[in-house]
Design a binder for these strands. Structure first.
Length: 549
DNA sequence: TAGGTCACG
DNA sequence: ACGTACGTGACCTAG
């Protein structure tokens, strides 16, 4: 018998917990009112006894204290995230209102003043929660396969939200002293948070003189471009990749300045002050806002950690990192969702791109990679170039699949991921722009917008399914870690789209590595069944994140 | 507030 | 012949 536990706000106290039989909806015990102090203990005990699926509107405010107390919830159902998925999914059979995840719902006055500052949001009464849950169940399709997909997606998204809370609580080990030392070495002594650090200021001065533009502010692209022109460099912009084409000592100086300036502004002392506490970086992960289902992070730029700074991500003594990522995930996902047998065959090899090379479809591994990405992104080098032609000949089924997604997008239609995450059809404004083609300029703009949307939907079907695979992978890994009894010692501390970082005792790293590979295999089967293509992962074990690539 | 640039997958 | 790939977040400057 499986149980579901609704966790809702108690208007007269803190939390209400209503434990029910998932199938019949019958209560298994009277509704319990628990105080903030009792919550962790009560939840832990209920988990041990019934292992229910924990249903809550959002993870806030419940998960933070639970994660802090080390309480493990095996299964979750986050209604706000489920609502958004069902609202957008073409597999859903009833129209459901969207849930505005961006706008935090306002707290309200509580009878119990102690609860005021961690008050759950409006609309989170137990009755409302249950009504919302039932409406969501009602919107699930009856057809078994579609139903299985949407349920898997909702459960994976929910466990992802729980993991996000656990990671926020754990934080990423960060060598603050090492980071400060690196800043001192490269930038000089710390000044105010506004002025340039000494070494950067000196470089700016030097650059202004060398270019013959006194007073130049190198942080202004406009001024910089003018100064470069004046000094005789015929560049179209000051973008690094364009400047890198020019081999000249002055240009090297400019590029060095840009690098230093970026370090100072993005990962300088102010960043450390704000985001690193007690030797750990605590970013905030945001789910449900990116259309494709990928995660975002607000504050600290967690998902854009430069490789150059990863040297200060260091595991504490006695522990190490296990860093795992899905190898060539997107081409493998494309092979799975398009049922392209040839591409799946290529994926039997750990290095899919190498296979393309060995099969003499491409002249180099880089060409294979670029060609594949081009097919998925919809770039000009796609089906039109010689590599594109070779890929089209070898993998016609996969190519047709992405072409169809692109066509749907160009016509304003929606597409969906494998598990049913929907990319909504174009809005009325977009369609109007498609019709307003009286003059040549608006015709061109409309065509360009149509192509852009085609590239977006072409990419969506792959990227969104890859995000689903990663969620399911992470969920399996967490489950296996718990089963192994390692929940306390092995913690997930980072996640970036297709890469997971665990922190664990050094002696467990080898076994954890095997567990993660196993989880990847299970993820493939959960999505695509027993005949799933392979999803190899590459794993690195190191006490330093910078070494893991 | 918008645009430019750059970081990541 | 044409467009010069997809998705994000963060910071700085210009107006």
């Amino acid at each position: 018998m499986s149980a579901i536990a609704f966790l809702a706000a108690d208007p007269d106290g803190y939390a209400l917990i209503d434990l029910r039989d998932q199938l019949t909806g019958n209560s298994l015990q009277p509704v319990s009112s628990v105080s903030r102090e009792e919550l962790a203990g009560f939840v832990a005990e209920t988990e041990a006894r019934h292992s229910p699926r924990w249903a809550m509107l959002r993870t806030t405010p419940w998960m933070q204290p639970l994660a802090a107390a080390g309480v493990f919830l095996a299964k979750a159902y986050i209604l706000s995230l489920a609502q958004r998925i069902l609202h957008r999914s073409p597999l859903s059979t009833k129209p459901l209102d969207d849930f505005n995840l961006e706008q935090p719902t306002q707290g309200r006055e509580w009878a119990n003043q102690d609860a005021l500052f961690s008050a759950p949001v409006t609309g989170e009464s137990l009755a409302e929660l249950i009504a919302m849950y039932l409406a969501q169940r009602d919107a699930l399709p009856q057809e078994p396969d579609a139903r299985r997909r949407l349920e898997l997606l909702i459960h994976a998204e929910s466990v992802g939200a729980v993991i996000a809370c656990e990671m926020e609580e754990a934080g990423l080990p960060w060598d603050e002293a090492g980071h400060r030392a690196l800043l001192r070495e490269q930038l000089g002594e710390r000044v105010s948070d506004y002025g340039r650090p000494p070494k950067l200021a000196a470089k700016a001065q030097q650059l202004a003189e060398a270019l013959g533009s006194p007073g130049l502010n190198p942080d202004s692209p406009q001024e910089m471009l003018r100064a470069l022109h004046k000094a005789g460099f015929a560049v179209g912009s000051v973008r690094a990749w364009e400047l890198e084409q020019i081999k000249h000592p002055l240009i090297t100086e400019v590029l060095e300045y840009k690098k230093l300036s970026r370090l100072a502004s993005t990962h300088g002392d102010a960043w450390l002050d704000q985001w690193v506490e007690n030797g750990r970086f605590h970013p905030h992960y945001v789910l449900g806002t990116v259309i494709s289902g990928r995660w975002a992070a607000s504050g600290g730029g967690a998902l854009q950690l430069p490789h150059s700074i990863r040297q200060v991500v260091r595991a504490p003594a006695g522990s190490t990192f296990v860093v795992a990522d899905g190898r060539q995930l997107e081409p493998r996902i494309l092979a799975a969702i398009s049922h392209d047998q040839q591409l799946q065959k290529a994926g039997q090899q750990d290095d899919l791109y190498q296979w393309l090379l060995d099969a003499k479809l491409v002249a180099s591994r880089d060409e294979a990679k670029l060609g594949m990405l081009s097919v998925i992104y919809g770039g000009g080098g796609g089906a039109s170039g010689s590599v594109g032609a070779a890929l089209t000949r070898s993998f016609p089924t996969a190519m047709r699949f992405v072409e169809q997604a692109a066509q749907a997008g160009e016509q304003g239609g929606g597409v969906r991921s494998f598990l049913g995450r929907g990319c909504p059809p174009a809005d009325e404004q977009w369609l109007q722009a498609q019709r307003a083609t009286s003059d040549e300029a608006s015709q061109r703009a409309a065509d360009s917008a149509a192509r852009a949307r085609g590239r977006f939907t072409r990419n969506f079907v792959v990227q969104a399914t890859a995000a689903e695979w990663a969620l399911v992978w992470m969920g399996h890994a967490r489950h296996l870690i718990h089963q192994a009894g390692w929940s306390r010692s092995c913690r997930q501390v980072f996640f970036v789209h297709d890469e997971i970082v665990f922190e664990c005792p050094t002696e467990l790293a080898g076994q954890l590595q095997e567990l993660i590979r196993h989880a990847a295999m299970l993820a493939g089967r959960s999505l695509f069944g027993q005949a799933s293509p392979r999803f190899p992962v590459s794993v690195a074990i190191s006490g330093n994140y910078a070494d893991a690539k």
